Simulated assay, not measured.
Amino acid sequence: MNYDLIKTVVELIQQFMEQNEDKALYSNDIQGFAEWLIISHPEDSKSEPGWLGMESGRSTDSIINTLLTRMGRYAKSYSRSATYHSVFSSQDDFIYLISLKSVGPMTKMELIRRNVHEKSSGILIINRLIRNGWVKQEISQKDKRTKHVQLTQEGLTVLNEHMDEIRKASRAVVGNLTHSEQMLFIAILSKLDEFHHSLYRMNLEAQELLDAVYKKLN
Rank of each mutant, 00 (worst) to 15 (best):
M1F: 01
M1Y: 01
N2C: 04
Y3A: 13
Q19W: 01
A24E: 15
S27A: 14
S27V: 10
N28P: 11
Q31W: 02
Q31P: 00
E35Q: 13
W36N: 12
L37C: 14
I39F: 00
W51M: 08
W51T: 11
L52P: 03
S56G: 15
G57Y: 05
D61A: 13
N65C: 05
T66V: 10
L67Q: 15
L68R: 10
L68A: 08
R70H: 11
K76E: 13
S79K: 03
S79Q: 09
S86D: 06
S89K: 11
S90F: 00
F94C: 06
I98L: 12
V103D: 08
I112H: 03
V116W: 00
S120F: 01
S120H: 01
S121P: 01
L124A: 15
I125K: 11
I125G: 06
I126V: 15
R128T: 11
I130D: 10
V135P: 02
E138V: 14
H148W: 04
H148G: 02
H148K: 09
Q150C: 06
Q150A: 03
L151T: 07
G155I: 07
T157A: 10
T157E: 10
H162T: 14
M163P: 03
R171K: 09
R171H: 07
A172R: 11
V173K: 03
M183V: 06
I186F: 12
S190M: 05
H196D: 15
H197G: 00
S198N: 15
A206I: 02
A212K: 06
L217W: 00
